[in-house]
């Protein structure tokens, strides 16, 4: 059934090598994938396995060393500024370190106004823009009145992460790449944020791609899970198959390393 869905992002032999010679790092090593529209995807791996590097290639922030990315069935072309901008209307990101994701000189209003401009709302009357910003903040449980005139770095980590979601709410991208979207926030707000993301997905037909080392999170949210080890996908499939019946030792280890509440957590493996 999944296979009848329209293709969204496809990768063939995608590779990224940093550095040269002896200091060469193959961060992403010939990965293949087929993400379908509306499917919830997770990419799981330990620190340094290449997740963020892959995310940056998907976003077009860095160029692959080798391999191809296909977007909606066609070879992705972001060779000019205009094409790149058009691509970014369709794909957006929430990043690991929310502090690094904002320009520190821009106030929160301008972060959100930029989004409104990006979706072609530049000429809307000011009241309408304020209304849109307030609605987006309300969606993520932030109070617009309390944020206006503040800088992003004046917010707590959790608030910054929610501000990023408010941007997503305005932009309504086709694809959302969420790199450790909940690592900075507490378990309670994590549930809230996951709820919001899933709501955006069902209302806006968004395809979320979660990037995480938390295999529990991946299991909870996704349809399809890709397990990444040293730049390669070593296992993939439906969340139930991969998490409940893992084949690879690496996947088994990732699962066994997460603290559980029903099963014994075996500390002797490390």
């Amino acid at each position: 059934m999944l296979d009848e869905r329209k293709p969204c992002l496809r990768g063939r032999g995608l590779t990224k090598v940093f550095g040269l010679g002896r200091s060469k790092t193959v961060a992403v090593d010939h990965v293949d994938f087929d993400f379908k529209e509306g499917e919830v995807i997770s990419i799981v791996g330990e620190s340094g396995s290449g997740k963020t590097t892959l995310a940056k290639m998907l976003l077009g922030l860095i160029n692959p060393t080798e391999g191809e990315i296909y977007f909606q069935g066609k070879r992705r072309d972001i060779s000019s500024n205009r094409k790149r901008k058009a691509y970014w209307k369709q794909i957006q990101a929430i990043f690991q370190d929310p502090f690094a994701s904002y320009n520190i000189f821009n106030k929160i209003d301008s972060v959100l106004l930029d989004c409104i401009n990006m979706i072609g709302g530049k000429r809307l009357p000011h009241e309408k823009k304020v209304e849109m910003m307030a609605e987006a903040c309300g969606f993520v449980n932030l109070k617009y009145e309390e944020l206006t005139n503040k800088y992003p770095f004046e917010l707590s980590g959790g608030q910054q992460q929610r501000l990023m979601l408010a941007r997503v709410f305005i932009l309504k991208p086709k694809i959302l790449v969420a790199d450790e979207p909940t690592s900075m926030i507490d378990a309670c707000s994590r549930a809230t944020i996951l709820d919001m993301l899933m709501q955006l997905r069902s209302e806006g037909g968004m395809t979320p791609i979660f990037i995480t080392h938390d295999i529990g999170l991946a299991y909870y949210v996704s349809d399809t899970v890709y397990i990444m080890e040293k730049g390669r996908f070593v296992e993939s499939g439906s969340a139930d198959d991969v998490i409940l019946k893992p084949q690879e030792p690496y996947t088994k280890r990732l699962i066994s390393d997460v603290p559980k509440i029903y099963e014994e957590w075996d500390l002797s493996t490390v």
């Binding site: 449980n141 378990a187 309670c188 994590r190 549930a191 809230t192 996951l194 709820d195 938390d214 295999i215 529990g216 999170l217 991946a218 299991y219 909870y220 969340a239 139930d240 998490i243 409940l244 699962i255 997460v258 603290p259 559980k260 509440i261 029903y262 099963e263």
Partner: peptide, 18 residues
């Protein structure tokens, strides 16, 4: 709001505190 990779998690709904 607990998330653990254990059977049954997918069918339980996380309850966010509003």
């Amino acid at each position: 709001s607990i998330i653990v990779p254990e059977e049954g998690l997918r069918s339980t709904k996380l309850t966010a505190i509003p």
